[in-house]
Amino acid sequence: MLLLIPGPVQTRPDVRAAMAVDIAPWDNDFKARYAAIRDTVRDIAGGVAGEHACLPLQGAGHFITEAAIRTFVPAGRKLLVVMNGSYAERMARLAREAGREVVALAVPDFRSVTPGEVADALAADPAIGHVGVVYSETGSGIVNDVVALGAAVRAAGRRMIVDAVSAFGALPFDLKAQPEVDAVVFTSNKCIEGLPGIAFAVSPIARVLECAGNAGSWSFDLSDVYATAMKAGWGSFRFTPPVQALHAFGVALDIFQKEGGQPARLARYRENARLLHEGVQALGMRPYLDWAHQGPIIVTVHQPADPAFTLLDFVERLKKHGVLISNFHNTPVPSLRIGCIGDVHADDIRFALCAIGTVLDEMGVARRQAA
């Protein structure tokens, strides 16, 4: 089965095989491997040894996003959230339920936010201390320019939290060049092409120390993750980790480095996205985004207006042809979500496009444009 979703992604056999190894997380040999993984992740994020720290947390992207909000945004303080997609909406909900005040900056989900829009929102409300932004919004496929946005946040004297869950490892990020960023967060099962189970934040150590006691949660306190590492060693855990998933992530990191790291992965995903974007148009369908706004992680496509088309039927038929896509959408209008990431290559995309065309013909979908 060819898995074309924006995560968990299709993985390589040696990554999956790493899950079959029984490991004691407290074993000294594995502690060394875990410590090395943390250092590698810090380096990929553009962090500097002694200045930045990788702070892992068991669980999904929502967990690490909430942990970053709780740790760095004091309770009752304001967080400006750039609202141009469904994952921004989730960030806002996580912040509200953690007792932080959300100021929503509404932006259409078919384009990125501009630095000027963020600057204006910050100027209008001096009480806003942080900006939360989703780097790659997998609701629609847009990419927000975190470098330009960070410059606006820095000029305003505020801080920023970057949800890079579906971006990290593919889209560039340089933490040392963005001192306004308190945390860049991501998970094991996206562009590094590992398996689900663990999430990561990379943060300035000075800020982690300054924010000790903010979280109001032991489980979601990144300053406590750091304190434990300082006390028990960099290869230590606070609570029982998904150790097999972490072991598999280490294998995926090795593959990532051998492939050429972030630039090589971005090039492969961008080519996948180009083939998809052009290919669905050749089939008579319309991408949700213009190419100028299309990111490399997921291509979203308007559902055909033909009454013969239903999403669940389409997805189930496509599975029979060896391709699995998401059976839901996150856009205001009906759409399809087709992932470009994972162990997926140009020939896989061509195979998928052929299968999509076959299924549309099977369903009798003649009117393939959106309503």
Rank of each mutant, 00 (worst) to 15 (best):
A212E: 15
S326D: 06
T138P: 03
L195S: 14
G139W: 05
P8H: 08
I23W: 12
V243Y: 09
P334Y: 05
Q257S: 14
I142D: 08
G46M: 12
A60E: 01
H345L: 07
G50M: 11
A267M: 07
L57G: 13
E259A: 14
F328E: 08
R159D: 05
L171E: 04
R238F: 08
K319P: 10
L2P: 01
D313V: 07
G213L: 12
G85R: 00
A119G: 13
W26C: 02
D120G: 00
V134Q: 04
D145I: 11
A305S: 02
P6Q: 09
T358Y: 04
L336N: 03
D22G: 04
L353R: 02
A67W: 01
E316K: 06
A170F: 00
F328G: 02
T310C: 13
R265D: 05
D290A: 15
Y269H: 14
F249W: 05
N189L: 09
F200M: 13
D145S: 12
L324P: 00
I192A: 10
V162P: 03
L105C: 12
V107H: 10
I5C: 02
T240E: 12
D221N: 14
A156G: 07
A215Y: 08
G46V: 12
M363Q: 10
A119S: 15
R154F: 11
K78W: 12
I5T: 15
Q58E: 08
A201F: 08
G261F: 03
V344N: 06
G357F: 09
E271T: 02
H62T: 12
V165W: 07
A88Y: 04
R268E: 00
C211Q: 06
V147G: 02
A32L: 12
L79Q: 06
L175H: 09
R93K: 14
A148R: 14
S188Q: 14
L311T: 06
F239W: 14
V143Q: 11
P196L: 09
F314C: 06
P56Y: 00
M230V: 11
Q257L: 13
D174P: 03
A155T: 11
G295Q: 05
T65P: 05
R367Y: 00
D290F: 03
I161S: 14
